[in-house]
Amino acid sequence: MEAITFFIAALIAIAGACGVVLLKNPVHAALSLVATLFGVAIHFINLEAYFLAAVQVIVYAGAIVILFLFVIMLLGVDRAENMESDPIIGQRQLAILAIAGLLILGIFIGVAFSGEVTGVPPIEAQQSTFEGGLAIDNGALFDKVPPKENIKEIGRALFSTRYVFALEITALLLTIGVVGAVVLTRKTKSELDPIPVVEPPVWMRNSEEEIELTHNEDQEEPIGEIVDPFPEDLSNDELEVNGE
């Protein structure tokens, strides 16, 4: 039963992850991110972390993805991304190759170290936790926690001397986050000047035609005129504007 659940949830999670990376519309990507988060929540239930599964659905799918969707709608950037043009030449192929190579290297390392997870913590870890004075309630954390007691144990551990300082620091972090978001998106009294268009360096220009265009001697362009690297009509033709 656990195997069936695992494979179904893994399929959902991986399909959602591929959707996030491959789908061109940001709204679709956000929705497939929800699929991935649900898959991971199912894995949490499978691993007897019931509280975390609930928190995963509520906080991630309920708050963070909604925040993403709000920003997508607010900025109106819900048009498809141009996947063909490559601003840095060969960067996408190199990235895919590097990630695949790292994954294969990780598999090799795992095989080399035989991949066996024994479940026995090393002796140093046991000593440091038992003698460090940080373990609460005569090391109750390291006893076998029955699955039904998980939520109660999490609550007890969260406010124990082991984690309460981290908890308060995260509270401070959330406060700073709220204040920072307000400060960053606040509109000032005088409308700010738009950032001037900067000519990108040569290695960031994407297509050959643009390089041809800049090197074309027939066109009588005055030297020093700024070339817009993303012409508006070109992008409008190539990109599929959503909702029209």
Binding site: A49, F51, L52, V55, Q56, V59, Y60, A63, I64, L67, F68, V71, G119, P121, L141, F142, D143, K144, V145, N150, E153, I154, A157, L158, Y163, A166, T170, L173, L174, I176, G177, V178, G180, A181, L184, T185
Partner: peptide
Amino acid sequence: SDLGGQMSVLFVLVVAAAEVVIGLA
């Protein structure tokens, strides 16, 4: 059989929420 993993995930969740808020701002 340790609760430390789940506690770490809780803190990662909080930090991820803060990170998303600042990043989107």
